[in-house]
Design a protein around this nucleic acid. Structure first.
Lengths: 124, 124
DNA sequence: GTAAGTGTATGAGTTGCATAATACAGATTA
DNA sequence: TAATCTGTATTATGCAACTCATACACTTAC
């Protein structure tokens, strides 16, 4: 559970984002059990209700499900998982294109920069 | 002055971001006069103090300067302008690469997506 | 059956942001 | 010269989002 809490965004949003990424990348597999509210809160040194808020939203979005008094689990619905991945990818590209377009960076300059930076991340 | 205030970020931060983009893209040229605090506040229907906060930070960052009792102007320092552009570009790329890397999207898939979306934005 | 673990619900506190109301100095304009 | 623009500064207030404290119901394990 590697989650840095540093952004300006609300903690519960960061928690949701983290799980979305883990689900989309397959790091968290379908049906897999996730930490209980109190457990995760303890790990992150935040309030259990903050985790609860994140989990509640994820449950409403069908990302996780809860049976009885057991820790929640990742959804088994492959459609949901796929759509999370698609959504995150779409979002990343939209943000990126919109930013560089505002800056008037031509495509010819962009591609090499993307390749360069991607490979740089790969290496480490 | 096209500025949509819809993000979750504080208004004064959005104002700063907007001016950075305008400066970096060259839409606002060096030495160019910008709206007075009260004028911009009126246009955006926000409080003059909120604009003042944004302008003050921009002035401290040397993005704008103020002489006497005249509306502030965009910096004439090309170095500053270049570094704003570099900073925004760097930021965009870092965010993007970091996002897609988390999702395990291979570079071969990425490039076509970038091209496709870039050209799509171009066309409209 | 008691303790410790689940999820859940409610209401109170904190805090950052935006607003508001003024005030003052200096320059320009009518 | 008086009105009206500039920028700047201070203090108070409102407010909404976020976080926290606490309590309750249920299940499982010892």
């Amino acid at each position: 559970m590697r989650l840095k809490l540093d952004s300006r965004a609300p903690v519960y949003v960061q928690v949701i984002q983290y799980f979305k990424e883990q689900i989309a990348s397959g790091t968290l597999e379908k049906g897999e059990e996730i930490p209980s509210r109190r457990e995760l809160a303890s790990q992150l040194k935040i309030n259990p209700n903050t985790v609860q808020r994140a989990y509640k939203e994820m449950e409403e979005a069908k990302l996780i499900y809860t049976e009885g008094n057991m820790p929640s689990k990742i959804t088994n619905d492959e459609e949901v998982i796929k759509s999370v991945r698609d959504q995150l990818l779409e979002e990343a590209i939209q943000n990126f294109i919109s930013s560089v377009h505002t800056l008037n960076i031509p495509l010819e300059e962009l591609i090499p920069l993307v390749k360069e930076n991607y490979e740089q991340v790969e290496r480490k």
